[in-house]
Design a protein around this nucleic acid. Structure first.
Length: 555
RNA sequence: GCGCCCGUAGCUCAGUUGGAUAGAGCGCCGGACUUCGAAUCCGUAGGCCGCAGGUUCGAAUCCUGCCGGGCGCACCA
C-alpha cells in the first residue's frame, strides 16, 4: 500500500512537470510515506513536497497541491487527499481498499512478512558462547533469546543464516576448572584442603568431583598432578558443555555448529594466523611478548597476542577465529556479546581493518545485563561465589515461552528487570499470555464456528459487501504493516520490534473481540470476520515463531 | 582521567533511523460476563522528553558543553 502511494507520488510529479506545473520532474529518494500518529492526518502521509522544496524552488504547500492535482489513482484506493501543516500530503484510503490486504495474507500464508532482502547472502550469528566452566545463567538466556531470534528474523528476510556457539575450551579458565574439580576431588578423598581464591566455588564443582570419584575411584591421586588436573578439566568441561546443550535445547535454542577454540590450536590455525600477521608487520615483538598493532586501526593501544611466557591470549584465538569466519564464506558476521565485553570491539574492528574486511560486514550485539527479581526484590548474584540462578532454574520455573518473550520485550541495550513472579502471572502484567491468548481465543472461535457448520478454512470475503467496522480496519492496517516491521527488525537486528508489534496487534484484536461478534447472525458477515480473524491468528503465530515462542491452541 | 551506552508519565520502557498535538504496559480510581475463552475490555488522571546552547521549514531523535547513572579501560577471560 505504501509502495503504491510512493509510486503515485513519482508519477504525479512527472505529470505535473510535463504540464509545466512543476519545474523538476523527479523527487528525491529521501521522501517518506508514513502512517501518521493521528487519524485526522489520514491513513498515510508524505513529506514529499517539503523534501522537494529546495529542488523545486517552490513553497512546500504549492508543490503539494500540484502533486495532488496530478495523482492518478488507477486502482481507486484513495478517498481523499489534502495538503496539511507545513506541506504534508495526507492520503485517506477508501475503507474497501483495505480488503485485498487480507487476501494477500491468506495467499502468502506462513510466508507473509518474509522477503528477499538478504538475497540469500550467508550470515553467521554467533551467540551465547559461554565458557564451559559452569552452567548458563539468566544473562546467557537473554543472549540466547536475542541471538536466536535475530537469526530467525534474518532467515525470514532472505538471509542464509548459520547459528554458531564458540566453545572456549582451551586456556587458563579450563585449567582453573580442572584445578577446582581436582581439589574438590582430593577433598572428597579425605584430604584437608585449603580452597584458594580464584577457583570456581559453585556446588556443581563438588558434584563434578564426586562423579570423577565415582568413575575413577582414588586412582587420580596416584597420578602426577598435571595429568590428574588435565583429566578433571576435560571431564568437567565435557559434562558442563553437555549440560549447556541440554539447557539450551530446553530453551528451544538449537545451533548449527559448535566451534571449538581448542580446535583452532590443534589445526595450527592460530599459529598460521599469527605468522601471517607477523610477516605483514602487523604483529611485532616487544618485551618478550607478541603484540598486534591494533592502535594503528582505531584501538587505543596495541594488544598482546602471545605473552612473554609463551602463553597465547584470548585475542590470539579470536584473530584466527574471526579470520576463519570470513574464509568460510560469510558475508556478514554477527557476534552477540555481554555488554561487559564492549571494550573488546575496537580490538576486533581494528584487526578486521588490518584484514581489509569492510566494517559493514561485522556487527556486535551488546546485550545488557538482566536483573533478576522475585516479587520486586532483587536476587543477589555472584558468579565468583557460585551463587547465581541458572537459566535452567528460570526456564523450569516460568517456562521457556515466558522467559523468551520477556527477554525480548526490551531493546537489548537496555538493562532488563526480570521478575520471576511477574513472569509466572497469568494476567496483563505478563505480555506473553496477552499475545498467546489471542491465538488460543481465535482457535476457540474457529472451533465454535465448526460446531455451527461453518468451515473457517473456506471462509472468505467474497460475498460480504457490507461496511467494515473501524476496529476491523485498524486490524487490517496493523497487519498490513507487519512485513515492514519484520524487515526493520531484521535490518536493525532488533527483535523487540516484533514483540511490540505483537502486543499492539493483540490489543487491537481484544478490543475488536469485545465489541463485535465474529460468529454473527449474518452468515456472510461471519465468513468475512472469520477470514479476518484467521489472518490475525496467522500473523500472531508467525510473529511468535520469530521470537521462538509457541502459539498454543488452548491455554 | 579516557572510551562506550543510557537519562521520556509515580514505576518499567517504546518512539517507524529529522516530521504535525508525546506513546504503551503496570500502578491508582471507576465501570463491563444469561450469547464466540474476563489470562479480556471500556473510562479518567498523569510530561520544561536530565539541563543549556546550536544546526533548519521542523529536534525526544543530529552537533557541542555541563549534570546524573551503568559498564569498560591487563602480558584477564
Amino acid at each position: 500500500m505504501k509502495e503504491t502511494i510512493r509510486d503515485m507520488l513519482k508519477t504525479a510529479v512527472k505529470a505535473a512537470a510535463a504540464g509545466k506545473k512543476l519545474p523538476v520532474d523527479s523527487i528525491p529518494d529521501a521522501i517518506d510515506v508514513e502512517e501518521p500518529k493521528f487519524e485526522s492526518h489520514g491513513d498515510f502521509s508524505s513529506n514529499a513536497a517539503m523534501i522537494s522544496a529546495p529542488v523545486q524552488k517552490l513553497p512546500p504547500r504549492v508543490i503539494a497541491q500540484a502533486i495532488i492535482d496530478h495523482i492518478q489513482d488507477s486502482e481507486g484506493v484513495i478517498e481523499k487527499m489534502e495538503v496539511a501543516g507545513p506541506g504534508f500530503i495526507n492520503f485517506f484510503i477508501r475503507p474497501d481498499a483495505w480488503r485485498p490486504v487480507l487476501d494477500q495474507i491468506h495467499e502468502k500464508g506462513d510466508l507473509y512478512g518474509s522477503s528477499n532482502f538478504g538475497k540469500g547472502r550467508a550470515v553467521q550469528v554467533e551467540f551465547v558462547s559461554a565458557n564451559p566452566t559452569g552452567p548458563l545463567h539468566v544473562g546467557h538466556g537473554r543472549g540466547a533469546a536475542v541471538g536466536d531470534s535475530v537469526a530467525k528474523i534474518l532467515s525470514f528476510i532472505g538471509y542464509s543464516v548459520q547459528r554458531e556457539y564458540y566453545i572456549n575450551d582451551s586456556g587458563r579458565q579450563i585449567r582453573t576448572l580442572g584445578n577446582s574439580v581436582y581439589l574438590r576431588y582430593r577433598e572428597l578423598s579425605g584430604e584437608k584442603i585449603e580452597f584458594p581464591d580464584g577457583l570456581y566455588k559453585g556446588d556443581y564443582i563438588i558434584d563434578l568431583a564426586q562423579s570423577v570419584r565415582d568413575l575413577q575411584g582414588d586412582s587420580l591421586l596416584r597420578k602426577p598432578e598435571s595429568e590428574a588436573v588435565g583429566f578433571c578439566a576435560r571431564y568437567a568441561a565435557d559434562i558442563i558443555l553437555k549440560g549447556i546443550r541440554d539447557d539450551l535445547a530446553a530453551f528451544n535454542v538449537e545451533f548449527d555448529r559448535w566451534y571449538s577454540e581448542q580446535g583452532l590450536y590443534d589445526s595450527g590455525s592460530v599459529d598460521r594466523s599469527i605468522q601471517s600477521f607477523r610477516n605483514r608487520g602487523l604483529i611485532y615483538e616487544k618485551d618478550g611478548a607478541l603484540w598486534f598493532k591494533t592502535s594503528e586501526h582505531g584501538d587505543e593501544k596495541d594488544r598482546v597476542v602471545v605473552k612473554s611466557g609463551g602463553e597465547t591470549t584470548y585475542f590470539a584465538s579470536d584473530i584466527a577465529y574471526h579470520t576463519e569466519k570470513y574464509e568460510r564464506g560469510f558475508e556478514r558476521v554477527i557476534d552477540v556479546w555481554g555488554a561487559d565485553h564492549h571494550g573488546y570491539i575496537p580490538r576486533i574492528r581494528s584487526f578486521l581493518t588490518a584484514l581489509d574486511i569492510d566494517q559493514e560486514r561485522f556487527d556486535v550485539i551488546l546485550v545488557k545485563m538482566v536483573n533478576l527479581l522475585r516479587g520486586g526484590v532483587q536476587i543477589a548474584m555472584s558468579t565468583r561465589a557460585g551463587e547465581f540462578v541458572t537459566l535452567k532454574e528460570v526456564v523450569g520455573e516460568v517456562g521457556s515461552d515466558a522467559a523468551r518473550f520477556i527477554f525480548l520485550t526490551r531493546h537489548y541495550e537496555s538493562p532488563l528487570d526480570f521478575d520471576l513472579e511477574v513472569a509466572k502471572k497469568k494476567s496483563n502484567d505478563n505480555p506473553v499470555y496477552y499475545v498467546q491468548y489471542v491465538h488460543a481465543r481465535i482457535c476457540s472461535i474457529v472451533a465454535r464456528g465448526l460446531e455451527r457448520g461453518i468451515d473457517a478454512g473456506t471462509a472468505g470475503p467474497e460475498k460480504h459487501s457490507g461496511s467494515i467496522e473501524p476496529e476491523e480496519i485498524r486490524l487490517i492496517k496493523l497487519m498490513n504493516r507487519y512485513p515492514e516491521v519484520v524487515l526493520h527488525a531484521g535490518r536493525r537486528l532488533e527483535p523487540h520490534r516484533i514483540t511490540y508489534f505483537l502486543t499492539e496487534l493483540a490489543s487491537a484484536f481484544h478490543t475488536y473481540y469485545n465489541k463485535h461478534r465474529v460468529l454473527a447472525d449474518d452468515i456472510e458477515l461471519t465468513r468475512f470476520r472469520l477470514y479476518l480473524v484467521l489472518a490475525v491468528r496467522k500473523i500472531i503465530k508467525n510473529g511468535l515463531e520469530l521470537l521462538g515462542v509457541s502459539a498454543p491452541e488452548k491455554m
